[in-house]
Amino acid sequence: MTTTRVAGALVLFALLLGGPSRARGQGGGMTGMSGMDMGREIVIPPGAPYTKADVEFMQGMIAHHAQAIVMSRMAASHGANPQVLKLSNKIDQSQVPEIRIMQAWLQRNNQFAPDTSSWHHVTMSGMLTAAQLTELDAARGVDFDRAYLRLMIQHHAGALKMVDDLFNTPLAGQEVDVNVFANDVVTAQTAEIGIMQRLYKELPAQ
């Protein structure tokens, strides 16, 4: 894999999104973030209809989506078959505006809104390891299709787990925007996992 290629795709992606978010308190950048820890304390105002878990979910899902978009934008240059390309395009076009929705929600609630580079620093459920990303980026043609579908199913399943974890947290997932968004993630991504399973089965045998 070439880190530069991924980084290049990401720059383009950041441009498409209008650059890093203008979140209050973003300050000097993204250094120091790791895991669920965005590097800044989450303060929930008294009486707010959301919880720390809601904020962490929205912040973490931005990173999660950002990596899915990087993966999907490899398809065109890595010889994906037309069906896989169509699906990767759908995932790309679906998740770009969802990142915007999450950023808008965080900003509206005066919470830190990560930008699309956050996937470098944040590891959420189902996200690819560096080795997996290298594997995907090195693959071409049907090997890419196979790796993309397997890894994106893993990635989507991780998103479902993030939602599950959110709703299993006491009092979390009740704020209307978070509730609607989390349910939409489940609806869209479960259907896409089904599509990916079908496409995987249709690939020529190894």
Partner: peptide, 15 residues
């Protein structure tokens, strides 16, 4: 609290 909003079962396009 256990929220009812759990993960939906998987949906596929294969019939």
């Amino acid at each position: 609290m256990r929220s009812p909003c759990r993960v939906l079962g998987l949906i596929v396009t294969v019939v």
